[in-house]
């Protein structure tokens, strides 16, 4: 097994051992799903059509913005990076393994939501499941790219927690998953559109896999990717 593949396997295991990933990728999204799922469908029965998409957006945003960045900061913010450099471990490797591992954890979590939501809350399954998961994949990878920028950019855990919340909370409140977006003032609607959650929610909704919904996520993914490359380059030369 190559160093890269072994690193991937180790990262997966570390994520399972790490309570923060367990909490942010599984426990909190599950509790939110079990609690809010019931409330949503009893207050607004029409939300049964979009419950799975809403909960998927919540889980992905939680894992990508709150769960993964601290692990990135732990590796790239200090002495771990130095040890990797001294032992010829390429710096990009840890980032890729963390992104892939979190991706898999969040897909599992969203899979659980898809499996449980119809039975528990009478939620409607997406009409085309492969398209739903394709949309989830696009939204996930974009959110993880943004989360990677946060983890590489911010220099200490306290600031990271604050900034991650600044990204996470509007993603949840302004993307339309909690209540219809047209209920918001116009300014907040515009602000909500700046977050990937807004587009991810539309993308995963039935009939939402259209270029218009992919465009912003694609741009955001590319910009975040370039930022990550620049930040890694800077960290290499530090």
């Amino acid at each position: 097994m190559s160093g890269f593949m072994y690193g991937m396997m180790i990262q997966w295991k570390m994520d399972i051992r790490s309570r923060s990933i367990l909490v942010t990728c599984y426990i909190v999204p599950l509790i939110f799903f079990l609690l809010m799922g019931g409330i949503f469908v009893s207050v607004m029965p029409e939300m049964k059509k979009t419950l799975i998409q809403s909960m998927a957006v919540m889980s992905v945003s939680m894992g990508a913005f709150i769960g993964m960045p601290p692990s990135i900061l732990e590796t790239y913010g200090g002495d771990v990076k130095k040890l990797y450099k001294a032992n010829n471990v390429p710096l990009y490797v840890s980032l890729i393994t963390m992104v892939v591992s979190t991706f898999v954890h969040l897909v599992i979590m969203c899979g659980l939501i898809v499996l449980l939501a119809p039975g528990l809350f009478g939620a409607e399954l997406p009409k085309n499941l492969p398209i739903f998961f394709a949309g989830l994949g696009i939204f996930l990878i974009t959110s993880l790219a943004v989360g990677s920028v946060l983890g590489l950019l911010v220099k200490n855990q306290a600031n990271l927690t604050m900034i991650a919340q600044i990204v996470f909370l509007p993603s949840i409140m302004l993307s339309g998953i909690m209540f219809p977006q047209n209920m918001l003032p116009e300014v907040l609607q515009k602000v909500g559109e700046a977050f990937p959650a807004f587009w991810g929610y539309r993308l995963m909704s039935d009939g939402g896999m259209v270029p218009e919904n992919i465009f912003y996520l694609a741009i955001l993914f590319c910009v975040s990717g370039v930022f990550c490359l620049l930040l890694l380059k800077k960290k290499k030369s530090d």
Partner: peptide, 8 residues
């Protein structure tokens, strides 16, 4: 000064 990820 060097370190490894906490859970490795």
């Amino acid at each position: 000064s060097s370190a490894l990820p906490a859970h490795i």
